[in-house]
Amino acid sequence: MKKSASSKSAFAHFKEEDNVESRRPATVREGKSKATEVDGEEVDARADDFINRFKQQLKLQRIDSITNYKETIGFVSVD
């Protein structure tokens, strides 16, 4: 019994390694070095900074939203 044309892969004539390697940028294909470890730490630090700033902005927006809501409903705080 023969396979139907729909069950055959259009990419069967390519080797799997060729497909993967051709999609990767040259920098990845060359291999990792010590520099990537240092760069990775820098990226992690920058990501942590971004996340912390983002969380702070969310807190400020929430406070602003609550303040606006209280002003809208005419809430008077007793200080």
Rank of each mutant, 00 (worst) to 15 (best):
30 E>T: 06
64 D>W: 05
75 F>N: 06
31 G>I: 00
56 Q>C: 02
35 A>L: 10
78 V>M: 12
23 R>Y: 11
76 V>T: 14
10 A>H: 13
52 N>M: 06
17 E>W: 07
37 E>R: 14
32 K>D: 08
52 N>Q: 13
7 S>L: 09
76 V>F: 04
2 K>F: 06
41 E>S: 06
55 K>Y: 05
51 I>N: 08
15 K>P: 01
61 Q>W: 04
31 G>M: 00
75 F>Y: 15
45 A>Q: 07
44 D>H: 10
30 E>W: 05
36 T>R: 10
64 D>V: 02
59 K>V: 10
26 A>M: 04
59 K>W: 05
15 K>R: 15
44 D>W: 05
51 I>G: 01
43 V>H: 14
78 V>W: 15
55 K>P: 00
56 Q>G: 02
53 R>D: 05
76 V>P: 00
68 N>H: 12
47 A>T: 15
30 E>D: 08
25 P>A: 00
13 H>Y: 14
2 K>G: 08
56 Q>P: 00
1 M>P: 02
43 V>Y: 15
61 Q>Y: 06
34 K>D: 13
24 R>L: 08
56 Q>K: 07
32 K>N: 11
23 R>M: 07
38 V>D: 09
67 T>R: 12
76 V>S: 09
60 L>F: 05
22 S>R: 13
15 K>M: 10
74 G>D: 01
34 K>P: 00
61 Q>S: 04
21 E>W: 09
8 K>F: 02
53 R>T: 03
